[in-house]
Design a protein around this nucleic acid. Structure first.
Length: 466
DNA sequence: TGAAATGTTGGGGCG
DNA sequence: ACGCCCCAACATTTC
């Protein structure tokens, strides 16, 4: 009568879950444990509540139970294993340093009590050591990394969800006691309208995307006012669907440029994990060390205006408000808004990263850290310092009819298309007709775009010279 | 997964 | 008919 313990991390699913699969294959009983990840930001906590509730329902439907605990895994797991008489603790192998450290400590402690921590590969497409250069090193540039991944090939293997779970009687904390949901104010309305956390929601999103949008993905994904992206990121982050399942699903479709580009986007996530494995302080420390001396500006007021979507640049403000309201932001707009913060405002990328961490449902150490470094120009394979997005041109190019801006910045909605991305260019009559009073109903630009660009080039030239 | 400045070309208006 | 200029369109380079 062996009981196996499964410790869920960001692999909150029953299907294609190697840790769970191994436990069910070898044990007669399985204890299923989730320990609250206290690092989660506000939006992630909201998501976590619903994905845990969904996971628990699926587990209970199969006769099992989900044990919820708070505290340090290094204390909780050995104690629980001992209480249950468990010798096998299964978990996902994570690239995040927080869990790597916990795993390392647990390995020692569990061994000492005659048990073992068995880590299963499941959060990325490839194990962290699998993709190497010919010289045996890690990749620092995306394109050859992606090429190596395509050549390695994703194994055509999906593990079924266990049909039946024989649980154990163990006390669990109550999910509702964790305070994961906002109460006053309840800011989650826009999120409830947009998302269905959990395995079923993830599968539906993937099905829908593959059926309707993936072939046109190559170009449609750039237009934030259209439904051109998969919106799978939070589902993938929490492991409600395995990256392998997403890959195999897409790769099995008739070949098209859209499919190929979507697979490459999955590899950007993979590349971020690859970077996190090499650079454990990816979220805070620039990979390119000369950026430690970058002349950033300290500007609380500008940071706050950016966070609230009050910079006076419509496409930036629309993106920041989409983030605030829905816990997600379209990728094209992420690049624009992030570039604006780091280059036009010269605010440290870490401050943008921290805001995204709190606001994104999918806040992911690897993807968020790597992407902010990419924008700031201090990361691996980063955007060169002179690549400064002009948010006005970007807005006009990728939101030509202003649909996106009008949705998230309603006070500009009545402006004609010509001015929707540049209200400061509109004459007084046009503004009055649209019900806009610049500086009152909508802010004037925080910084002049040309001046901000010039200032950024000057600042970046200092780093370049080092 | 840029933008702006600068350079080049070629069509058409015009004397 | 021809050269000249203008400038849009495209290409290259610079930031």
């Amino acid at each position: 009568m062996a009981t196996h313990l499964v410790w869920f991390k960001n692999d909150l699913r029953l299907a294609d879950n190697p840790a769970l699969h191994a436990a069910c294959a070898e044990g007669t009983k399985v204890a299923l444990l989730y320990i609250l990840d206290e690092r989660a930001g506000g939006a992630s906590r909201w998501w976590l509540y619903y994905t845990l509730a969904a996971l628990r329902r699926r587990i209970e439907a199969r006769g099992g139970t989900l044990i919820l605990r708070r505290g340090d895994p290094v204390n909780i797991i050995p104690a629980l294993a001992e209480a249950l008489g468990t010798r096998d603790v299964h978990t996902a192998r994570s690239m995040e340093p927080y869990w790597r450290k916990a795993d390392k400590a647990l390995d020692v402690i569990l061994k000492a009590q005659g048990a073992s921590l068995r880590r299963h590969h499941s959060v990325s497409l490839f194990p962290p050591e699998a993709i190497r250069t010919k010289a045996g090193g890690a990749y620092g540039v995306f394109t050859p990394f992606a090429k190596a991944c395509f050549e390695a090939g994703v194994p055509d293997l999906l593990l079924p969800a266990p049909a039946r779970l024989q649980g154990v009687e163990t006390p669990s904390e109550a999910l509702d006691d964790w305070g994961l949901l906002p109460v006053k104010p309840d800011w989650a309305g826009g999120m409830r309208a947009e998302w269905t956390p959990g395995e079923a929601g993830a599968a539906a999103r993937l099905r829908d995307f593959c059926a309707n949008a993936i072939n046109a993905y190559g170009h449609e994904r750039d237009f934030p006012g259209r439904l051109g992206t998969s919106k799978l990121s939070p589902h993938i982050h929490f492991g409600e669907i395995s990256p392998r399942a997403v890959w195999l699903h897409a790769a099995a479709l008739p070949a098209s440029s859209g499919v190929r580009i979507f697979l490459k986007e999955l590899l950007w996530r993979e590349f971020s994990l690859h970077l996190l494995w090499q650079h454990q302080d990816l979220r805070t420390r620039p990979i390119r060390e000369e950026f430690g001396a970058f002349p950033w500006a300290e500007d609380e007021a500008a940071l706050r205006a950016w966070q609230r979507g009050q910079t006076g640049i419509p496409i930036v403000d629309a993106g920041m408000r989409e983030l605030w309201q829905t816990g997600w932001m379209h990728n094209r707009v992420r690049m624009i808004a992030a570039s604006y913060l780091v280059k036009h405002l010269l605010i440290p990328w870490q401050q943008g990263e921290a805001w995204f961490w709190d606001c994104l449902c999918e806040a992911d150490e690897a993807a968020n850290g790597a992407s902010w470094q990419w924008v700031a120009g201090c990361g691996a394979d980063a955007a060169p310092y002179f690549r400064i997005f002009n948010p006005l041109l970007q807005g006009r190019k990728f939101d030509p009819d202003g649909a996106y801006v009008r949705r998230f910045v309603p006070e500009l909605a009545r402006l004609p298309d010509k001015y929707i991305h540049a209200p400061w260019e509109a004459d007084a009559v046009t503004l009055a007709r649209a019900g806009i009073h610049l500086g009152q109903t909508y802010p004037a630009p925080l910084v002049d775009l040309a001046a901000g660009r010039a200032r950024a080039l000057e600042a970046y030239a200092k780093v370049k010279a080092m």
